[in-house]
Design a binder for these strands. Structure first.
Length: 319
DNA sequence: CAACCGTGGAT
DNA sequence: TATCCAAGGTT
């Protein structure tokens, strides 16, 4: 959960997961949809799919016990260099080269590394490796990470409080905050979409998204493709009324009952989305008929709206 | 190796 | 509003 996610954001999810599935065996036995629903809002949903895969591999191939071996850990889904080293250190108390963003930042400043990220990563890993020690194998990486978080901060580092100040080449240079150096990144493109909120009584229509790619395995609202140009009203109205394209965007024929309810913004890692929302209220009978024709859709009670990723939860807030 | 993959808080 | 960034991994 902590991979690229802040502790305050992850903490309530961690508590809930541990209450629902206290052991790796419990998690391995959980239904996929339930795990994905509990992960909703945390982002990077491949982590949830891989976490579940991992639990099942640990049960089927390791007797339900995580191996205390870094190479074996690395073979598990969702385990990369950081997580394998972190588990070796924090869980098993064995010395390991734990290198996260915090420790990368400390090393880049301590040695004033001129190579920009991400090319500097192997360099920073090697530098961090020089500090690995066998005693207090749990405390040492934790201490470095906490030092980075509290003192050697990304912005406005508190160098006057830092125990490494006299050894720090970045401090000696006068501007340790410029490290780690990074290359300019391309601006985020803006894309445009149209989502459809089809409501009946206490529920609305959702679909299970494909297992791979963006929001893979999550529930979502039916929507038109996210593309580089704005959707015109003509283009939107077409799939809402009888047309040859109706099979591609199978939506209920609203007969003028579709209502535009507004637009919202959402920012993903590599693009920003401006999404229109259209709403249609159907009778229970209409919904039943529609769902019979199109089995890719299902009804989700309003009470379960938290199972949606945020990008679609925002559409509900709009209403 | 670069691109992909969410979200929300801080500044 | 714009930018940065967080206990990275997978493809």
């Amino acid at each position: 959960m902590l991979q690229q996610t802040t502790v305050p954001h992850a903490l309530p999810y961690f508590e809930k997961f541990m209450a629902l599935w206290p052991t790796v065996r419990d998690l391995a036995a959980a239904p996929d949809e339930r795990v994905m629903a509990e992960w909703a809002g945390l982002g990077y949903y491949s982590r949830a799919r891989n976490l579940l895969k991992c639990a099942r591999v640990v049960v089927s191939e390791h007797g339900g016990v995580f191996p205390a071996d870094e190479v074996a850990l690395l073979m598990l889904p969702s385990f990369g260099p950081y997580t394998a080293a972190a588990v070796m250190s924090f869980a098993f108390g064995k010395a390991a080269n734990v290198v996260d963003g915090n420790i990368e930042r400390i090393m880049s400043r301590l040695y004033a590394v001129k190579t920009p990220m991400p090319a500097a990563k192997p360099v920073l890993r090697e530098l961090a490796g020089r500090w690995v020690r066998d005693d207090r194998a749990r405390d040492w990486p934790q201490a470095l990470m906490d030092l980075a978080s509290a003192v050697c901060r990304p912005k406005s580092p508190l160098c006057m409080l830092c125990p490494l100040r006299e050894a720090c080449a970045g401090f000696a240079e006068g501007n340790p905050d410029i490290y780690p150096l990074k290359t300019a990144r391309a601006p985020k493109p803006v894309r445009y979409g149209v989502a459809f909120l089809i409501v009946s009584e206490d529920s609305f229509i959702v679909e299970r998204r494909p297992d791979k790619g963006l929001l893979g395995g999550m529930l979502g609202l039916p929507h038109l493709d996210w593309r580089d140009e704005v959707w015109s009203e003509d283009e939107i109205v077409t799939p809402l009324s009888p047309s040859p394209d109706a099979s591609h965007h199978p939506l209920p024929q609203g007969e003028g009952r579709w209502v535009s309810v507004g637009t919202y913004d959402h920012v993903f890692t590599h693009f920003a989305l401006k999404q229109q929302v259209w709403q249609l209220e159907l009778s229970a009978q209409e919904v039943s008929a529609f769902l019979r024709q199109h089995n890719q859709y299902q009804l989700l009670p309003w009470a379960d709206k938290k199972a949606l990723p945020t990008v679609f939860g925002k559409a509900l807030r709009l209403v």
